[in-house]
Design a protein around this nucleic acid. Structure first.
Lengths: 184, 184
DNA sequence: GTCTATAATTTGATAGAC
DNA sequence: GTCTATCAAATTATAGAC
């Protein structure tokens, strides 16, 4: 009878939560171990170094995030609906999780991150850009270059809106910003 | 013959630069001391605790930033020009300094900051909101509530654009996002 | 103002027993 | 897989001499 979540997953859960509060320096092997109910040395068995753990949470975060969005070319979902879903994903992170976007956090400190972690963070932004571009090009008459600009704009605006709303402790500020996004 | 910049200012300079790379945990008394050519204990003479130093760099950053923008109600500057100047201030930070916005960085880790530092970070966002609202209301027929939304949108978008451009190591991504800002 | 010395804590990491 | 034991390094901070 194994538990529903493996120890490695529990470690990832704890590390992700801490990193989404305090960034790359916001999680430590000791704190994670305490959270999961093992010793710090045992965490190293699952993830040899901090870089590995950092890269792993960024990778899992990216995969889960995109998975939650669904396919950008799903014929059953209208482009406008997909963009609303995209905004809702950020809003959920802010309002329900009450946590910063992991890769927005890592992105802010990108030049201070170990290579492995920085690369996974880049991938989050690249894959988000691609997802948005696909949706935007489906929606409209935009050329590829313009679709990329629009994708960058939505991505940047939502990451910034999270920071703004969290700093002012005012979720309404997020909604105010999201409303200004042109979605056609 | 005293030097042009006091020791306290040199300390602030070093701390700000480090914080704009690695966040609140990105600067330490030892590293700062090494940078300005004194010992770590001497830094405590100028700034008793890390909180004090953190709050001081956020406060100075805010004052300098707003000073560089000029008065939002300056009759000699058109609102559109002021907004272009606002965008240019972020761009300078990204391209010339090659550093993140200090308060964007602190904002991302806001729930992990000591109270004093968090409060100064909030003030940055509030004063930026107010500056932008003044300019926006001068420019157009917007009601106050709509002006606040527009202000939040510009602020959030530029902070997010910095993160995006730094993560992708592509300043053009910043410009692409800035272009999408509606400035009338 | 700056120093030496030192304290107390935390960190990432490894060796080796079980 | 998890543990104990241990390490070297870094951290914030203070006391007291100069």
């Amino acid at each position: 009878m194994s538990e529903r979540t493996s120890k490695a997953e529990q470690i990832l859960d704890a590390a992700e939560k801490m990193a989404r509060i305090g960034g790359y320096h916001g999680f430590s092997f000791r704190e994670i171990a305490k959270d999961v109910g093992i010793k710090a040395a045992s965490v190293h068995y699952h993830f040899p170094g901090k870089q590995d753990l950092g890269a792993a949470i960024a990778k899992r975060y990216t995969e889960r995030f995109l998975e939650s969005l669904g396919a950008p070319d799903d014929p059953g979902a209208a482009p406008t609906e997909l963009l609303q879903r995209y905004i809702a994903a950020y809003r959920r992170s802010l309002v329900e999780d009450k946590l910063m976007c992991l890769c927005g956090m890592f992105g802010a400190e990108i030049t201070h991150l170990p290579d492995k972690v920085a690369r996974e963070t880049q991938i989050f932004f690249e894959r988000n850009r691609d997802w948005l571009m696909t949706v935007i090009m489906r929606a409209g008459k935009k050329k590829k270059a313009d679709a990329e600009k629009a994708a960058f704009s939505i991505l940047a605006t939502l990451e910034g809106a999270m920071i703004l709303a969290r700093t002012l402790d005012d979720p309404a500020a997020f909604d105010a910003v999201a409303q200004t996004l042109a979605l056609e």
